[in-house]
Simulated scan of single mutants.
Amino acid sequence: MDTLRRARGGTSVIFAVHGAVTGTFAARVPWIADHVGTGAGGLGVALLMPGVGALLAMPLSGRLAHRYDLRSLTRVLILFWCAALVLPSLPTSLVVLCLVLIAYGATAGIADVAMNAQAVIIEERYGRSVMSSFHGFWSVGGLAGSAVAALAARAGLDARIHFLVTAAALAVVALAASARLLPHRPEPEIDAPPAFALPSRAVLPIGLVALCAVFAEGAGLDWSAVYVRDVVGDAASTAALTVSVFSVSMALARFAGDRVIHRLGPVATVRLAGAAASAGALIVVLGERTVPVILGFGLMGAGIAVVVPLVFATAGRIGEHPGRSLAGVAGIAYGSGLVAPGIIGGIAHLTSLTVSFVMVTALTVAMGLAARVLRPAPVRAVPQE
């Protein structure tokens, strides 16, 4: 049991490191845009590239997970992910930035699949839900990375130096944490999955639940501040606070999520989460004052927070190749995150931002109604020596 607890702690740190890289990059995007010399249009194109890279790389993850020991694979990929943080700070042209962001996103995607596969193994050995807490550590890492980046930006620190120092520090942390991970290789009699495989029919319904959750998450993170500023008409500082409320509520809900899942089960939890997220989104749509709208975004964040961890946990128990199933779900989720900002913006341009969040409300309702696809096979606890 001590080995399992150590593995859980090490995996939690790996998730936090992954989130910290993401948060660090996101907070320095304005510096990168200025360094490249591009406006909003060019930046919008560039920010699509990490999702494209992830979508291209993720179908390869199942083959990698089958071929290599998962502990070693996770260690190598999280170190590559830390190193990839340096890449976006280097280009001075939009074309080169787009190319390096494809590589950046590809590294993010395959590292994401590997660490979630490690989390699935740990959850199986615990015999109860622990996946939500891992994703909670990812959220904490993202918040910490963005906070440090905000301080670096305020101090006028060159992002090339900031990213290099941060990448080195996070790599050291990840290397130490990876020593605690569990070794794992698939059974030798199981054939290797295809080198490039799309989501299977069994995974697709689960992936669609992930699509709804990640789309709503992307809408909240990317558009909540704009909504408070443009629709409610409050100050930019208050609008920025909305993003923090949304993010913190997601992190807190993820840390509480495992207890809720243990008590209610995955299906009832997602139904409750869908109801909470839908109520929050509806408050946003109907609200006319700042405080209710911000609280609505917070409730929406808390509602969708536990869904993605549950989706990964369920996918990791499907079929002979959990890595392939995880990659399929992750690909759908990343794809949803990729298109969400553009779809929200397109609908807002044609109608209004309020109408965009009516669609978000419909997706959170669908997420709750589809909860039964997450009904798991019994989880078997593995005795520890």
Rank of each mutant, 00 (worst) to 15 (best):
I318W: 04
P292Q: 07
L326C: 06
R380V: 15
G319H: 07
L151Y: 13
S61K: 05
S61T: 11
A46M: 12
A362R: 01
I294W: 00
P383Y: 05
V329T: 15
I304V: 12
A159G: 12
D34R: 07
A177E: 10
A279R: 01
L101F: 13
S237M: 05
I332S: 03
L295Y: 08
G53D: 12
G298P: 01
V245A: 06
M49W: 07
A348F: 00
M115H: 11
G62E: 12
G39F: 07
G207C: 11
G39I: 09
R125E: 12
R63Y: 13
D230C: 02
V96I: 14
A192K: 06
W81C: 10
L101G: 11
G53S: 14
L204W: 14
L211P: 00
G42N: 09
E288V: 13
Y334C: 01
A16S: 09
P292Y: 06
V355C: 06
A216T: 02
L151A: 15
R229K: 12
T361N: 06
P341I: 02
L326T: 06
D230N: 01
V308M: 07
A153G: 13
T238C: 02
V267S: 03
I161T: 15
D191K: 11
G218S: 07
L99K: 07
P199V: 09
S247K: 03
I261H: 05
A54G: 15
D158M: 14
D34F: 01
S12F: 10
G274K: 03
S12K: 06
G316T: 08
L90Q: 12
G23M: 04
G142W: 04
R128W: 12
A177D: 09
G218M: 00
F25Y: 08
A276D: 02
T24C: 08
R63W: 14
G265Y: 07
G42F: 07
L73T: 03
V17I: 14
A313V: 04
V76P: 02
L60G: 10
W81D: 03
I14F: 09
T74S: 15
D2K: 14
L56C: 14
A225E: 00
P50Q: 14
M367Y: 02
H184I: 06
I343C: 04
L157P: 06
A235C: 04
A155P: 09
